[in-house]
Each structure stands twice: as C-alpha cells, then as structure tokens.
Design a protein around this nucleic acid. Structure first.
Lengths: 337, 337
DNA sequence: ATCGTTACCGCAATCGATTGCGGTTAATAA
DNA sequence: TTATTAACCGCAATCGATTGCGGTAACGAT
C-alpha cells in the first residue's frame, strides 16, 4: 500500500462536509439532503473510492469473510465442495479464507487461531485425520462464531454437520454388485479409525448380511495412498479365492487399485467388477468408466454454507439446535459393473 | 463475535499498566522491564490472548494476506498451483484469499476490488478467458501492491509473469510422437485466441516443420469442454485420413478425446497414440496411462509466490524490473505413445 | 543540594469507518 | 416578534493495536 487509497476523509475535504456526512450520504441515510448525497456520491465515484473493508471489520465486526478449514485442497473431492461453498457465499456478498491443515493437528489449531484473528463471521470445517481433541473448535464457538462441519466431522461438538450418508451409500454400492451376481466382494477402506471408513464398512456389511453372504476379512484391505492400495490389491488378487469385485471408498485409492488391475491384464468388469465412491468427473476418466457412488461435493458445500448463513443472520444463533444433515449419495451405474 | 475476544486493553487492566506497555511488552521492546514483560506475557497467555489481525491491518497495513485470482478452483491444474503457493506463503506466515472469476470479466474486476478493500499485501493472478482489458489490474499496481501473474498472463502489464514455456512443451510432445513414427498428428487446442493455445500450436508447428511434415488444418481442432472435445474428435476420426495420434493441450479436453476413442473401440496407442499436457496424477488414471507434458503446477505456484515476496519485502519494489520466468515442462513418457 | 542520566512507562494520535447525540439554520406557527 | 420544530449536519467516541514523544522516579556524581 504505497499509493495510499482514498478514504472517506478525502471525499469529505473535497465536498466540504464532515466525514460523518459522507458516511451517511454513501448509505442513503435520510438525514442527509439529496443534493449533499448526490454531491458526495459523484465525488466518491470520480475518485474511485473503495470503502476499507478492514476498517468496517474492526468497527462493526463484519468482515464478510467465511473461514474454511480443509485437510488438503489438492484432492479430488474438496475443490468441488469449495465450489459449492463459493456459490452460496458469493450470493451473500461474502468470500472465503481457505486454510489447509495438510492433515496435521497442530496446523489445524493454528488455522483456527488465524481465522479468529481475522474476524471471520463463520467457519466451515473438515477435521484432519490426526485430530482427536476438538477443543480448538470450541474456541470458535465460544467466540460466538457459527460453525458447520462437513464430510469428516467431530463426534462431540455442538455444531451443525453436513455429511453424506456413508453407510447408506456403501450399502447401495455393494448391493448393486450383489445384484450383478458378484459374491466375492472386496472392500478397500482408508484409515480404519476414521468414521468414514467405519461407516462405509458398516454399509458393506449390511448389504452382505442382507444377502446372507458371510463376511470374509481377507477381503478387507485398508490403504491411504494409491501406491499402498496397489500393493494391497496385489495381495488380494493373489489369494486362492481372489475377489470378483472391489469396492473402493475413495478416489485416490481407487486409482491405485485400477493400476494394479491393469498391470495384471485383468478385464473390468469381466474378471473384476469395480465400484468407487468418487466424483463423477474422475470416474469418467477411467476405461471402462467406473460405476460409482458420487458424494456430491458440490451439494455438500452448498448445504453447509446455507446452514452457516442461517446462523449468521439469525439474532439468536445459540437457540438454534445443532442439526446433522445427511445427504444421499447417488448410485451412478457405468461400465465397470 | 458475541463472546467478545479479549484485547490488549483487558490485559492492561489486569496487569495494571497501560495499553502501550502491554503492546511493547508483548513484542519485547527494551523499554519495558523484564518483570513487566513477564507479567504481561503470562497474563496474556492465561487469558488466551490473540492479537486482532484486523486492527494491525488497519493500523500498519499489514494484513498478512495474499490475494489469489483464479478462473476456477475446480479444475485439474489450479489446485496444484495453489498448493505450491500455499507452501511458500505459509513459510512467511501469510495466508490466502482465493477468489474465482468463473472466467467472467466482470467478476474478475469485482474480485480485484475485494482484494484491494481487504488490504492484501500482494496478488497472484491468472486472467480469465473473457478478459481483454487489463486496467483493473493497474489499480492494484497503482496502489503499490506487488503482483505476479502466472499461467495465463496479460500481454501489456508491467508485472512479473511466471509461466511454462508452452511452445517448448508442445514442441517436445509432438517431436516425441514423430520419433515414435507418427506422421498424421492432430492437435486439440482451447480457445484459439488464448495465448496458451497460440503458443502450444506454435510448438506443434515447429516440430512438424523440423521434420518437414506439412501442416494439415483438418487436424487442428479446438474445444473448451470434454463434450465439445468428444464431438470434435469424432469428426477427426471420421476423416478419410484419420490421424494416427492426438496431442491435447488440456486435461479437460483430453478426457473428452479419450471418451470418444473408447467409444469407437480404438486401441491406444496402436490405432491412436495420445499425449497430453496435464498433471501427472490425472495422466495415471487413464488406461493406458497417458504420456504427457506436465506443467508442474506446484512449481509454478512456488515460483510465483517467491517472486511476489521478493517484492513485498523489498524497500524499492518499483525499482525491480518486471521479469518473465519461463518454466520448462517435463516430458513424461508412459504407455499411450 | 543540585544536576544529569538511565530506566521505565503513559498520553494521545493514528489507521478508516460508523453512529449517538447535540447543535445550527430556516421555516412555520402563535 | 418569539417560540417551536423540522431538516441537516458535525463532534467525538469507538473498534484494537502501534508508536513518537514526553514525563517520572531513582540513582549516582559533583
């Protein structure tokens, strides 16, 4: 900021009125005569005046900024969520401060502090994989700042949550495989401690149970990177009774699985049927295109943001009961099943 | 902000000193005695004091925020750039305000105003497809705020630019195809008016010329969406002399091309060799994996951010000559060629 | 006893915008 | 002519932190 921006004071001097008059004129306060208003406005216009959001933020605590806490923007899923958030946030004239934790607990704490220091008016968050303690989020809530969690949510924080019904989604995926005649169905989850893994595994088991297929723990693998998924898949396919289908609960691990299947020159879906839990656009990039449960990141972002603004604009935010919104994910059948 | 945050004033009252003393004590000003310093600090700590970044920003014009202007975060390329930017920006204790234009000129103008109103200390930008006039960027520069453009850059703004050497990259890609024995090489560009299209096309022609292969404008298609690319590809493959290889200059259009090739049950690379201009991770998702020129988004982000901080921390920003940095993209040979 | 230092600390202005309250002018009523 | 009352507008405090400058106390030196 060298070429100092022009302020309300500059306008006041030029028009020959006080700063208070300028301030009021600019927002059509009835106390100010029409001529004065016009004079102020035209000068403001000609000087290319831009009100300092920072000053407003200090004075009124209205920063027009929503904080977003993410593990990693460089992924398949989060950019679409961010898109949904932006869509809504822009409607209200707000914008985003996006902070990533890189899945680190300490970084997540720092990030909450940064948001607090910047007077954000609301926070949307997905917790990192490392996070077990949620007290840093309480700081935000205690400051009276509305929060909505999405996707990976904490289990004992009094705030709104927006997430996909993982159990239901996984259930639909596996049921679909069964209906296609598969019986030896493997599942690749992520970190077994994560709720997302737990729930999707639950849906998997539910579908098996419904068709009286016994659960075989040799068919359960866990991976957090494509490479890891590939080696795990290799083990799977080397079994005496290799699976005839695989359900992968994440985009990233699916790519590893596909790699390994290609490497072994197996056919999809003839030898192995595949179904993922991933964004549409990525499923379409494979050959054959993957059937999938799409988590609808866009929709998650929208809903979370809407819920947040409901609180921001409510006079008695604290009287609104925290709510958990489950979104149904959609089964999209393509060529891999 | 209901549960009002605690301020320097609260600490002052509790310790029994003035606010100025607290301010100085917190930053180890030598004027303040050690006991006072410790007293202030311990109280600050126990009250969980967090300095208001907003107040500092107003007073000192140090917002610790870097603005990022993007067409669309939901893409293949930009998240990786953002990652690179974040990496550097965090080193310096800064964070990002990311604004997307959705390729709309008017939105881009609004976004520059938002950044200005928020006292950002620097701006990193990629221009939208619609943008022909760059005067809104001049506003930022005139305010004394350093700017670095990356990827899609304007052609007549006095600012730093960081971009990949498109011509060289395309040249390497096409040369690679030729060396693999291909002669009927098609190219799919984006909007023909965009510099990126122009330059990559230039590299394509350069490689052809080097091997004395005449340019055939039937082999030149242009698309901005996967769907559009698919129909264009269909036309290509329906030619009397269909191409034996296709070079696609963007991730998105490549996906459309691949779709169409799959649909026609053509083999890659036997019938049609493919080479893209895309991020590694996406190339690996195809079957077969795509050879590619990788634009190294991460590296672009890093370099742009570094260049920006060079200006931010220099006392005479305006004396540093604007510089255009070309990054070499890397040829990664996989299975599609 | 007086002056000079040094060591510490507070006053008050400042950044830019907002707003309660009080003041001035002019018009109108009595 | 005087009191009343709109109609307009300005003063000054405020948000939270920073900082130039001035002030006080304690100490030693002369």
């Amino acid at each position: 900021m060298k070429g100092k921006a022009i302020t309300i004071k500059d306008i006041a001097k030029l028009v020959g009125v006080s700063v208070s008059t300028v301030s009021r004129a600019l927002k059509d306060h009835p106390d100010i005569s029409l001529e004065t208003r016009d004079a102020v406005k035209s000068v403001a216009m000609s000087m290319n005046y831009r009100p300092s959001q920072v000053a407003v933020s200090l004075r009124l605590k209205q920063s027009k900024v929503i904080g977003v806490l993410l593990p990693k923007i460089y992924s398949f899923f989060f950019p679409s969520v961010v898109n949904g958030i932006e869509e809504v946030v822009n409607e209200y004239g707000y914008h985003l401060m996006i902070l990533q934790s890189n899945e680190l607990y300490q970084k997540e704490i720092n990030n909450t502090n940064i948001l607090l220091a910047n007077n954000v008016e609301g926070v949307l968050a997905t917790v990192s994989r490392q996070t077990k303690d949620y007290s840093h989020f309480e700081n935000i809530l205690d400051a009276g700042i509305p929060m909505v969690f999405f996707d990976r949510v904490p289990d004992n924080v009094m705030a709104d949550m927006v997430l996909i019904d993982d159990t239901e989604g996984a259930y639909k995926a596996v049921k679909h495989l069964i209906e296609r005649g598969r019986r030896k169905i493997a599942i690749c989850i992520g970190n077994p401690e994560m709720l997302i893994s737990v729930n999707r595994l639950k849906g998997y088991k539910k579908a098996l149970a419904e068709y009286k297929i016994p659960f075989n723990d040799e068919y359960l693998i866990s991976a957090e990177t494509p490479e890891h998924a590939a080696t795990q898949t290799s083990r799977l396919l080397g079994l005496k009774q290799p699976p005839d289908s695989i359900f992968a609960i994440s985009d990233l691990t699916m790519s590893g699985i596909v790699q390994e299947i290609y490497r072994r020159k197996l056919r999809v879906p003839e030898d192995v049927a595949l179904i993922g839990f991933c964004e549409t656009i990525f499923c379409k990039m494979y050959n054959p295109q993957l059937s999938s449960i799409t988590p609808l990141g866009l929709e998650i972002g929208r809903q979370a943001a809407r819920r947040l603004f409901l609180r921001i604009f409510s006079s008695n935010n604290h009287n609104i009961k925290p709510q958990t919104i489950f979104l149904n994910s959609r089964l999209e059948i393509r060529d891999s099943t």
